[in-house]
């Protein structure tokens, strides 16, 4: 159970970064942390102590496998996270070109 709590703690650290950090790159890192924590949580949900990897061969006839579905999902989620992070960084760099700053509190032309 504690390990789940740590996952949530990691999630919250990521959120903290998003809410309080002004630097665009640090915000992106915050997202990376969140994505990491959620993926970790997912993998842990499927985990069973002492179980084998879910590969059915003639040698291992036991049914004590870890749950394979979260692993498949985590793989997909990582790809999506990669895509998001890449787009975010690309746009952060473009913003730097235009505004000459990474400080989000100075990037506020759109308001009202």
């Amino acid at each position: 159970m504690t390990i789940f709590v740590f996952c949530i703690a990691l999630f919250l650290i990521g959120l903290y970064a998003i809410v309080t950090k002004r630097n665009l790159i640090k915000i992106v890192i915050g997202f990376a942390l969140i994505e990491y924590s959620v993926n970790l949580l997912f993998a842990l949900i499927g985990f069973r102590r002492g179980a084998l990897a879910p590969i059915i061969t003639k040698v291992h006839t036991t049914h004590n496998f870890v749950d394979p579905i979260p692993q498949a999902l985590v793989l997909t989620a990582i790809v999506i996270a990669l895509g998001t992070t890449a787009v975010m960084l690309a746009i952060a760099l473009r913003i730097y070109e235009r505004y000459k700053t990474f400080d989000i509190s100075k990037i506020k032309r759109l308001k009202g």
Binding site: S105, I107, K108, R109
Partner: peptide, 9 residues
């Protein structure tokens, strides 16, 4: 309208 001040946080 003023409340939408453009600050992300």
């Amino acid at each position: 309208s003023l409340l939408h001040n453009g600050e992300l946080y």
